[in-house]
Computed example of a mutant assay.
Amino acid sequence: MPDPHDCPGCAAPDLAFAAHDHAHCAHDALNRAEALTAATGARMTPVRRRVLEILLEEHKALGAYDVLSRLAQEGFGNQPPVAYRALEFLVDQGLAHRIQRLNAFTACAHMGEDHAPAFLICRGCHSVAEAAATAARAAVETEAARAGFHVERTTIEALGLCPACQVQA
């Protein structure tokens, strides 16, 4: 199976904000998601697959109601649980991430990998890139351990401007 990370614009945060041919890596990511869910015995239903396809269309985080609107237009239903259940499944399976600051969701750039992402969120165009934050997570865990605290999950979200929006500013 092709590695979705072959598309440098999709996996590398320094290129995620740059124009690139995103179609092939989105297709490969869908194939990877299908394989990962099959390997764990999880079921990729048509609604779940379509929600992931929607998230993979561009490097932006989408709210549940944005996803629901698209699903409703395509005949998948218009009740909020339809979108929320699919998004929850994708997050639980490691195929998507929830961006707390935006109350939105984005496809995971490193499906199937144990990783510590930091989300680079452009306040201008609302694009989101996933950057490695292993060192930052380790630093938080070290400080937490000194306080006797066990970290179960860390989310790092950085707000700023992507290169294109910096030029426009």
Score class of each variant (00 low, 15 high):
P4I: 12
H5M: 09
H5D: 13
C7P: 15
C10Q: 12
A12R: 15
D14E: 15
L15T: 14
A16Y: 02
F17A: 05
A18R: 10
A18P: 07
A18M: 04
A18V: 13
A19T: 07
D21C: 06
D21S: 07
H22D: 08
D28L: 02
N31S: 10
R32C: 10
A33Q: 01
E34F: 10
L36S: 06
T37M: 03
T37D: 06
T37G: 04
A38K: 08
A38H: 11
A38M: 05
A39E: 13
T40F: 01
A42I: 05
T45E: 05
P46W: 00
V47M: 01
R48D: 14
V51G: 00
E53L: 14
E53A: 15
L56Q: 15
E57V: 04
E57N: 11
E58Y: 06
E58S: 15
E58K: 12
K60G: 10
G63E: 00
G63V: 03
A64K: 06
S69N: 08
R70I: 12
F76A: 02
G77M: 07
N78I: 06
P81D: 12
V82G: 02
V82Y: 00
A83R: 02
Y84Q: 14
Y84C: 06
R85K: 11
R85I: 05
A86K: 03
A86E: 05
E88Q: 11
L95N: 01
L95E: 00
R98G: 01
I99T: 05
I99S: 01
Q100T: 14
Q100G: 03
R101H: 05
L102C: 06
A104C: 05
F105G: 02
A107H: 07
C108F: 04
C108H: 03
C108I: 12
E113D: 06
E113R: 06
D114C: 04
P117E: 00
A118T: 05
A118K: 15
A118P: 07
F119N: 09
R123M: 09
H126D: 14
H126V: 04
S127R: 15
A131H: 10
A133N: 15
A133C: 11
T134P: 07
A139Q: 14
A139I: 03
E141T: 13
E143Y: 04
E143M: 09
E143W: 02
R146S: 09
A147Y: 03
G148C: 06
V151F: 01
E152T: 13
R153T: 08
T155K: 08
T155E: 03
I156L: 10
E157F: 01
E157T: 12
L159S: 08
L159A: 14
G160K: 10
L161N: 12
C162I: 12
A164G: 12
A164E: 14
C165K: 10
V167H: 15
Q168T: 13
